[in-house]
């Protein structure tokens, strides 16, 4: 417990606020998945998993590299689950078909997370570089799937624009714009090796130099985008689910 409090104290206030908001959003989305139709389960679980992926900052065992890597895998699974949910919703809007059940969604997600855990356990401890690669892959997938989800949401909205919950999808559209900016800015820094992880790696492990000083303006801007868009993402997810809950009540 002392270690946990120490971690909280050491954390950047922005990161702490972001984790807290993701925690709230995760709780709301998970609660939403329990009381609503099957199609919402994938979407809700996905957003809940974002919280788990973001919680590494307050994880007392976060210094274990396998656990850090696991957080990134959970993040990747999160956006894939969310996309699967929106894709199902889009299919429903076109065909009015609703298949599957909630238990299968829960168990499938759990199965994937267990398989990811087993994958990490049977492989060597990931180096900081490997973890950074994982984080970069996670961000790339997030950015790509955010664009796809924005398009899916646009199509869903145009199909159901005169229904009660159509405005709720606009809220989800805002969520994905925020997430796109947050993850996109992070990916931008990673691609140009201006991210903090890379700076730490080259300082501690290699003799490589960096050109970060030449582009400090855009690096700082990107870092600000990551901070604010990250917080806004968490806030908007919580808000979107609360709004959707109100619309469906």
């Amino acid at each position: 417990m002392e270690k946990f409090i120490e971690l909280l104290v050491q954390m950047n206030p922005f990161d702490l606020v972001q984790v807290v908001f993701w925690g709230l959003a995760g709780a709301i989305s998970f609660y939403f998945s329990i009381g609503n139709a099957r199609v919402w389960t994938s979407i809700s679980i996905g957003f809940f998993l974002i919280f788990l992926s973001q919680a590494y900052g307050i994880n007392p065992w976060g210094h274990y590299q396998k656990l850090t890597a696991y957080h990134h895998i959970v993040g990747t699974v999160a956006i894939m689950t969310i996309t699967h949910g929106f894709l199902e919703y889009y299919v429903f809007c076109r065909t009015f078909e609703i298949s599957g059940n909630k238990l299968i969604v829960y168990l499938s997600t759990l199965g994937i997370l267990i398989a990811a855990g087993v994958f990490l356990l049977i492989n060597p401890t990931p180096s900081p570089n490997t973890i950074r690669n994982m984080k970069m892959i996670e961000n790339a997938i997030w950015v790509f799937l955010c664009i796809m989800n924005i398009e899916l949401i646009r199509k869903i909205y145009s199909a159901i624009r005169d229904s009660d919950i159509s405005k709720g999808f606009i809220a989800f559209g805002i969520v994905f714009v925020c997430i796109f900016m947050w993850r996109g800015a992070d990916l931008y820094l990673q691609i140009f090796q201006w991210d903090q992880d890379w700076q730490d790696i080259i300082t501690l492990m290699t003799e490589e130099s960096t050109d970060i000083d030449e582009y400090m303006g855009r690096v700082e801007f990107s870092r600000e985008v990551i901070r604010y868009a990250g917080v806004l993402s968490g806030v908007s997810v919580g808000g979107a689910f609360t709004y959707m809950y109100k619309l469906l009540k």
Partner: peptide, 12 residues
Amino acid sequence: ERAAKLLVSGTN
């Protein structure tokens, strides 16, 4: 009813 639950509020 099952399909409408994805689109309409409980009251409606």
